[in-house]
């Protein structure tokens, strides 16, 4: 029994994260390079706009907040712990995160409902879309459950999970602390790996290409085949500069 438990632990907490990360990194790069055409957020707003608002906006707000929350707790656990040193601040953080999680849940439910009930949207929904939504739903529900029942998550995440995650990235996986966590928490971790694993095979790829550079790029874009001024000069070679295209 212990052996089985250990084996499962090792698989889900050590093997799976490596598989997931490997597939995610290689898969995303491969998909980006092989066919940029398939990199799209595949927005369906054009077919239905009103319901989408109540799905997409709370969903994205919620998931962005929680994603960066988890990321910060992973990257600078000491910072989160320092913030949480004061109970009032801890409560503020937990309550805010909880509200965002609820928003995320509501958004997801609305999105799923819209995909199922609107015939136009159903047409542009793939099996993977359903899989992703259901997986996210389970994950969020699970997360809310954990946050409610195992308080205070932001603190013990920083002290228990962050070291474990770091150990994964340091290639010296250490599951001693996480192994003893309740199974609900562990399933949250496992589902997270599954989501990472599925990114290259789903529309989630669009989060890898957020249009950040729009902020500093000039509004207008003109592309030339060649730098014509240089070409006109007799003494410069024809192919002095490669054009910026492609």
């Amino acid at each position: 029994m212990d052996n089985l438990f250990n084996a499962l632990n090792n698989f889900f907490l050590i093997a799976l994260p490596y598989i997931a990360l490997f597939v995610f990194v290689i898969g995303s790069i491969w998909r980006y390079r092989s066919n940029g055409f398939k990199f799209s957020s595949l927005s369906s707003q054009f077919l239905e706009g009103r319901q989408l608002f109540w799905g997409s906006v709370p969903f994205h707000m919620g998931i962005l907040f929680l994603f960066f929350g988890h990321l910060i707790a992973f990257l600078i656990p000491s910072g989160v712990l320092a913030w949480n040193a004061h109970p009032a601040r801890l409560i503020v953080l937990e309550v805010t995160a909880f509200i965002f999680a609820i928003a995320l849940l509501i958004g997801l439910v609305n999105l799923l409902y819209r995909r199922i009930t609107n015939p136009r949207i159903a047409i542009v929904t793939s099996k993977m879309d359903y899989a992703i939504i259901v997986l996210l739903l389970v994950q969020v529900f699970n997360g809310i459950w954990v946050a409610y029942n195992f308080r205070w998550g932001s603190s013990w995440f920083s002290s228990v999970l962050s070291p474990y995650l770091w150990s994964i990235f340091a290639l010296q996986p250490d599951t001693s602390a996480v192994a003893s966590l309740p199974w609900v928490v562990k399933s949250h971790i496992v589902a997270a790996y599954l989501i990472v694993l599925l990114i290259p095979f789903s529309r989630l790829v669009h989060f890898l290409v957020p249009p950040i550079d729009y902020i500093w790029r000039p509004y207008q874009r003109v592309i030339w085949y060649w730098n014509k001024k240089e070409i006109r000069k007799a003494h410069t070679p024809w192919s002095l500069k490669r054009p910026k295209n492609n």
Binding site: P211, Y214, R217, Y219, Q220, I223, W224, K228
Partner: peptide, 18 residues
């Protein structure tokens, strides 16, 4: 002064120089 080019967040729209 294309509004479409200016609005594209990913910079996918462009004007051909030639």
């Amino acid at each position: 002064n294309p509004a479409c080019v200016a609005s594209c967040p990913s910079g996918a729209i462009y004007k051909r120089g030639e």
